[in-house]
Nucleic acid binder design. Sequence first.
DNA 1: GAAAAAATCGAAAACGATTTCGAAACTTCT
DNA 2: AGAAGTTTCGAAATCGTTTTCGATTTTTTC
Lengths: 339, 339
Amino acid sequence: MEITTLKDIANELGISVATVSKALKDYPDVNKETKKKVLYMANKLNYTPNQLAVNLRTKQTKTIGVIIPTTVHHFFSNVIDGIIAEAEKKGYLVIILQSDEKLFLEKLHVNLLIDKRVDGILMSLSNKTNEFVHLKKIISRKIPLVLFDKVEPSIACSKVRIDDKKAAYQAVCHLIKKGYRRIAHFRGDLNPKISNDRFEGYKEALLDHDISYDPSLVYVCNNNKDFEDGYLNAQKLIKEHSNIDSIFAITDLVAVGIIKYFNEKGIKIPNDIAVVGFSNWFMSSVVTPTLTTIDQPAYEIGKTATEILLQEIELTHLEQPIKHKEIILPTHLILRESS
Amino acid sequence: MEITTLKDIANELGISVATVSKALKDYPDVNKETKKKVLYMANKLNYTPNQLAVNLRTKQTKTIGVIIPTTVHHFFSNVIDGIIAEAEKKGYLVIILQSDEKLFLEKLHVNLLIDKRVDGILMSLSNKTNEFVHLKKIISRKIPLVLFDKVEPSIACSKVRIDDKKAAYQAVCHLIKKGYRRIAHFRGDLNPKISNDRFEGYKEALLDHDISYDPSLVYVCNNNKDFEDGYLNAQKLIKEHSNIDSIFAITDLVAVGIIKYFNEKGIKIPNDIAVVGFSNWFMSSVVTPTLTTIDQPAYEIGKTATEILLQEIELTHLEQPIKHKEIILPTHLILRESS
DNA sequence: GAAAAAATCGAAAACGATTTCGAAACTTCT
DNA sequence: AGAAGTTTCGAAATCGTTTTCGATTTTTTC
């Protein structure tokens, strides 16, 4: 005997499949005695329901799909942790796909997940994503969608993110309060919202403290190799601007690249130049000097996004209307040696 | 109209569901004209097959399950990267579950994946796993299983791993060749094979160079907080043994903890004490001083394990016998400043 | 003891696809 | 024209479960 089915139990007991099914699901219209017998036999034959059949029948898969740019990333692996933890708690499985920052893969994966009939989808958009038909397709199929981290405002769905502009503002204000005035910014790629938001926060902080904004102090890191971007741009910065006293980097990894270069060149942090990062990667607490940075609640972002998604799945299933939420989780400035 | 099914196409064209199905799968016994019509209509109605129904019928889900201790880990996130990349290439989806180093969760997840009818399972065992009925259950269900990293020799399945003993041996030999003699070892928990293997490699290297093995130089790191373990044990070590000249740490994270403490106490690396890690986390290339370590091919481990698993899935499906493989991937000693 | 009510069961349809096998239609050949 | 062979199609079974609804049996009520 291979795998036990309802039919096997039914045959064994000389009753119908329907009754067996109902007995196992504790329907009221089945005799207590037969319930006992069914339970006993199910146990004896080691029965577990074939989820494929259940899924087909109930049109629910108890599975959610996740599309993120990459898993090899401190932030995303913590987000995944939060997602899986929350999903497991509610009995959902998690399928993870990587867009590798490519739009065509993102689209492909969306189709895959739709075909797979996942109950809901969680996405952080790739940096290259500048059109959104694939997201609209998800919504038109009535599949709950929650965007996190890299979100698109124009899409009607729930979103979980941080306030990048505010966090950047906070970081730069910190530098200003510490007395730094010539503040460079190593920004991210031009397209993504978070990159622009952080840039805006940087500018606004300068403005609010009557420091004139100098575009030549802004360096773009867009090679997808943050560490090297930081290292090389630090090199460039030192050549081009000798009078810099601090840098606000879009990412800890960029900041660590900067630190590496400065350490090699004997440039003292923070005495010669202060450095502030963004994300509070584990690494920032162990580099020398330790890095001042913005703590981004990655685990909570994953957990919260999943909570909302599962709620919306339940509501959809009950055919009730859903009100989309936009959650902004708080960030914290972590003060360390580098500033 | 909600979602298009074969029936919709059939009704629209006034033909049977069977013909539509066969037309879409390019069966030879359907007229070219009708094939064209079906294809056209399928396209027009935006048809995609309901995978749930396909799965139920074909008894294949094109999905593999992965159970690992944690995703928030440089090694594992790279393994996942390799797994997902390879699986995606072959049209398989990946469900990821975390055991959180707990045996009961590992068992639970195994059952979940079996019920979910995944086509195959990839596992790295938790540190606490000391019984294997759940693995045998997978095998008895004829579900291909591939163990990687933390494997169990007694289980009859394919395995992908590195030679931990040899790698550790290599690392310690390197220290000895550099002239270090009083070599401490910060080892991992007592149960896991990899922890013991590395320990054995350490001992053998000493033996082969006529250095007597001193058990008091071995410190156990088992708080699941490698960084702190390294930091605290470094503190302890300095108190207890003033004449140490080097440390071989089971993990880069432990090594970084050590480095942190030494940096704080002004102990010079490698002049006072040398440090060697294990894994070649990204971090090791950016800490000060940069860390000598063993490069562990995480991505390749994930990729290779998945390749083997998918092969075995194919063979199982063709009802052909499978020969289990044991692949040992090469490690490399990365020389850096800390030794 | 008959009628009404309650308890218990199972046949059958459904979910949406795949695949076998026989029937019908059409060609080809003598 | 009729036999034989080819194409082309579709009815029906199947995967394993869920759920409705009607049938049957048992219990209750007066």
